[in-house]
């Protein structure tokens, strides 16, 4: 059976030209996003991810390639057709982009006014949407009086007003504190499940992807480096670019001196918080050095990664690897 893709991007290229110089921002991008999923695109700033998401609703016109949204070839539409098509693609931004001279309620009414809905009907619908995002008591407040999280909720309500099939989220948690980020992500997940809206999340924050996405694409210097389930990609990154992005904080191990081999353990939540390292040390009577660790415990499950320096004894190393295999911990040798 053919997969039901809501967004398909074929051989997309985007080049910006300014003052005679051209810079390629996106190079031969191919992505298919399934209907109803939460799809993440992660990359460092300057990788091209914001341009990529803008190519999905044609805020940026691709230099070459085709973009399909819900079966419609976006790249072939006229300006007028494009405006109509955009009504079924909601978008949320890092800086909220609310109308500062309108109340929360009137901000949500805005896209409805654009499609010519009667004022009374629009306000009714906007009220429902504000209730959905938990802001019923803030209807008459102006954005200047709302917190970052509340502003983003208004923006989400506004993006949902025209019942979009797709929600594009451009770094929507980057201006928010960790607790607020958490609640916004939960809201998105909730909306995805309740409304069945496909969500595309652009971010540089791994935790955002880990928390809500089912699949992820890693973008690095204009290329899609890897694409797959979050589990697959985050646990066993194949490309150097992906490793660099995912493990960027572990770089200082280069300076670590010692002769034993370095082993990177990845905890993907499949193991519990049993003290695996301690058990291993006791079992084999070996001394391992923890060169780097970045793990966290979520709901009694361990996520993150750790770099161990193993003893030089080859036989012992064999045994340790065997033990890790038995425990179902994935690992890779560091160069």
């Amino acid at each position: 059976m053919k997969e039901d893709y809501i967004i398909e991007i074929h051989d997309l290229n985007k080049t910006f030209t300014s003052e005679g110089k051209s810079i390629q921002v996106l190079d031969n991008i191919n992505i298919s996003i399934r209907r109803g999923e939460i799809f993440g695109i992660i990359g460092l700033s300057g990788a091209g991810k914001s341009t990529l998401v803008r190519c999905m609703n044609l805020l940026e016109r691709p230099t070459a390639g085709k973009v399909y949204v819900d079966g419609q070839e976006m790249t072939a539409l006229t300006e007028k057709e494009l405006r109509t098509a955009r009504q079924s693609i909601g978008m949320i931004f890092q800086n909220f982009n609310l109308l500062m001279q309108r109340t929360a309620l009137d901000n949500v009414c805005f896209p409805l006014e654009l499609v010519g809905m009667k004022k009374k009907q629009a306000r009714e619908k906007a009220r429902e949407l504000l209730a959905t995002v938990g802001l019923s008591d803030k209807e008459d407040e102006y954005p200047a009086r709302l917190s970052g999280g509340q502003k983003q909720r208004v923006a989400i309500a506004r993006a949902l007003a025209t019942n979009p099939k797709v929600l594009l989220c451009d770094e929507i948690t980057s201006a928010l504190d960790p607790t607020t980020t958490q609640s916004i992500l939960e809201l998105l997940k909730d909306l995805n499940q309740k409304l069945g809206v496909t969500v595309i999340v652009i971010t540089h924050q791994m935790k955002v992807i880990e928390q809500i996405c089912s699949r992820v694409a890693i973008i690095d210097s204009s290329h899609i480096e890897e694409i797959g389930t979050v589990d697959e990609v985050f646990r066993r990154p194949k490309t150097a670019a992906a490793k660099r992005l995912l493990y960027s904080r572990g770089e200082h191990i280069d300076k670590f001196t010692g002769r034993g081999k370095l082993l990177r353990l990845v905890f993907d939540g499949s193991s519990t918080d049993r003290p695996i390292i301690a058990e291993m040390i006791l079992k084999f009577g070996v001394i391992v050095n923890i060169a780097y660790a970045d793990t966290k415990n979520i709901d009694g499950r361990m996520y993150g990664h750790m770099i161990l320096q193993l003893p030089e004894d080859e036989g012992l190393v064999e045994q340790i690897l065997g033990y890790l295999d038995d425990e179902g911990i994935s690992y890779s040798e560091e160069g």
């Binding site: 805020l59 405006r83 109509t84 009504q87 909601g90 931004f93 982009n97 805005f110 896209p111 654009l114």
Partner: peptide
Amino acid sequence: DRGVIEASHSMGAT
């Protein structure tokens, strides 16, 4: 703010 204008474009404003 250019961001607000971009948001309006994303909603299909003329």
